[in-house]
Design a protein around this nucleic acid. Structure first.
Lengths: 351, 351
DNA sequence: CTGAAAGCGCTTACAG
DNA sequence: CTGAAAGCGCTTACAG
């Protein structure tokens, strides 16, 4: 294939074809289609019309090479597959991102990694290859090492949640605490005094927030938690934690889980053990997943809107890459949705 | 910013820097790092060493512009969000893709769309912008219009499953039928005579395959299906179908669902109606999800390996883009995993 | 308001 | 075996 021969039979039109057909230079075509000042209106219209007739679209790769922008955003998922697979958060979150990227001709580059080393490599590769104009920083962690990493790599980012340290990036926040607080009040109002929490992975900030909100709400009502158990957010550990609570000294009459999958596996453990839900133990999930609506009984849970979160984060990240800064965004807080897995506390029994 | 000034303070090294430092032309550097013939071994080694010292990586965008290859693969998801979110197939499938892309320095471009028009636009945009070197064709449909579309767009593809028409693309096949057949035999062996199927979306080939396998296996054992109901694969329709079966003239003693989420919502409906599982009705899912292991009772289901499917598809697509052709791949078939949601048929009762 | 030219950082025939 | 040059298809100061 000679370098002079067009690669495609008819040859997709290039900016040169448009310039020739419009009788102007290719530089002018570029100015015209990019709405830059310094082009007579009549000329602009003519160029646009010719471009349209020829069916010309600027070649993205060439534009990328010139402008150093890729029109792509990156998302790196680091999670145990068992956990990602059962967790409906990400599909909805990504769909939300897509709603805004699509209409902007942007694209999402996805990376799924297993451990922290692979995660760091993923960010470094995205940066070195200039694959993306910015990234979403999800599953924020305590003292998150990715923040200095992204600063070092000079890659713009939007944080999903409020970081616990300083970070030179805008954040999009969805308050978990309000829902947990409401759940605890709901349970206390139903007469529960022995309430336990099956928390998530304490390395993750949102797991910490949920746990702290639980502890504070319980204290606020003059109680102490019956137990608080950390997990990795997996159904397996949710089930194990539930079994441990059942076997413990004081059996809780209500359990607040840090996500729906664990609440569902907990429900399974309770029912397998012959414990009536909500007759003997009330169960509260977190997420407001589709599955939670279809269990027996349907789960009381705390609902957030991951799709809106994705959309807001994408808008913020695009603003950041375009202008160099973007304001923080506060989304509607997660809220309690009461279903039939919670009910009045059983009459107190002597141990 | 003058066009002569380097964009980054120290300036990431370019091929020119390497050529200068190694005392050769940049063309030779390119030949050396790409392992092309016509470079003296000693020269090649020297170039490589210098490149390494300078920390040079070829600029991906520039390479893309020259070679017209993007080192990226595309996946377009068109599904109702309610369904995607509850379905753990895609996270695992994408993780499988990533395992092979990552080690090849490739990247996955993801698009999530709602309807068929948006889907077509997504493929057209990927092609027009030359975002990807090839795409995964998932959720194969009857007489799939995407096949001629991709031919028209001249974009290589790998089919996930065997198409029902001709297609000039390799396919990676995972046989659904064997597992469904085994499930029916399992139920018949347990004494069931009234077996129903809650199928998936009949527009999708895999839903059709599962349904046909069900019907054939039932016939093979001299029975007729009690009922076969189509759905859209959502938990909601799975629940509705189950309620309809309960209310029907002949109540089935066993139900085979086309996916786990519907089996789970079906289980919820049965239990809410006071129907004992498996005492009165046996339930079989399809997918082998994590959730199915944690329900009460745990689900008998049909397990496949979506992660391996993703990895095999990625390997096939890379082979195709590299060499212009790739052989079809046949994966291990889905297999029955028996748990406690299936049991002996209840004694026959008079209606 | 417009044109001509250089530049983005690679790859690839073509000469020597 | 190596060098010099053209090409990929855009964008962007710089002159006029």
């Amino acid at each position: 294939m000679s370098p002079r021969a067009p690669r495609e039979a008819p040859g997709a039109p290039t900016i040169v074809d448009v310039a020739r057909a419009a009788g102007v230079s290719k530089g002018l075509v570029s100015l015209a289609v990019n709405n830059r000042p310094g082009v007579a209106e009549a000329t602009r219209l003519r160029v646009l019309e010719v471009a349209d007739q020829l069916g010309w679209r600027p070649n993205l790769q060439a534009r990328t090479l010139s402008t150093q922008t890729t029109y792509a955003l990156g998302l790196v998922l680091r999670r145990d597959l068992r956990i990602v697979a059962a967790d409906p958060f990400y599909p909805a979150f990504m769909a939300g991102i897509e709603t805004v990227l699509t209409e902007q001709g942007r694209v999402l580059v996805l990376s799924v990694v297993g451990d922290e080393a692979a995660e760091e490599r993923a960010y470094r590769t995205l940066a070195a290859d200039r694959r993306v104009d910015g990234v979403f920083l999800n599953d924020l962690r305590h003292d998150d090492r990715r923040v200095p990493l992204l600063v070092e790599l000079r890659i713009p980012a939007v944080l999903l949640g409020r970081p616990d340290g300083d970070a030179p990036f805008p954040c999009v926040v969805l308050d978990d605490a309000a829902g947990v607080t409401a759940a605890v009040h709901h349970l206390v109002d139903l007469g529960h005094r022995e309430i336990a929490h099956v928390g998530g992975d304490p390395a993750l900030l949102h797991a910490r927030h949920r746990r702290r909100a639980f502890e504070e709400a319980v204290a606020e009502r003059g109680l102490v938690p019956t137990a608080v158990v950390d997990t990795d957010f997996s159904m397996t550990q949710g089930a194990a934690a539930t079994a441990a609570l059942l076997a413990g000294r004081t059996r809780p009459t209500a359990i607040v889980y840090a996500n729906d999958p664990m609440a569902i596996s907990g429900l399974g453990v309770l029912q397998e053990a012959g414990v009536d839900v909500p007759g003997e133990v009330s169960v509260v999930g977190f997420d407001g997943t589709e599955t939670a609506r279809h269990t027996h009984p349907p789960l009381t849970t705390i609902r957030s809107d991951p799709q809106e979160w994705g959309a807001a984060a994408a808008r913020t990240l695009l603003t950041l890459t375009a202008s160099g800064s973007a304001p923080d965004v506060e989304l509607a807080p997660a809220e309690l949705v009461v279903a039939r897995s919670t009910g009045p506390a059983p009459p107190a029994r002597s141990t």
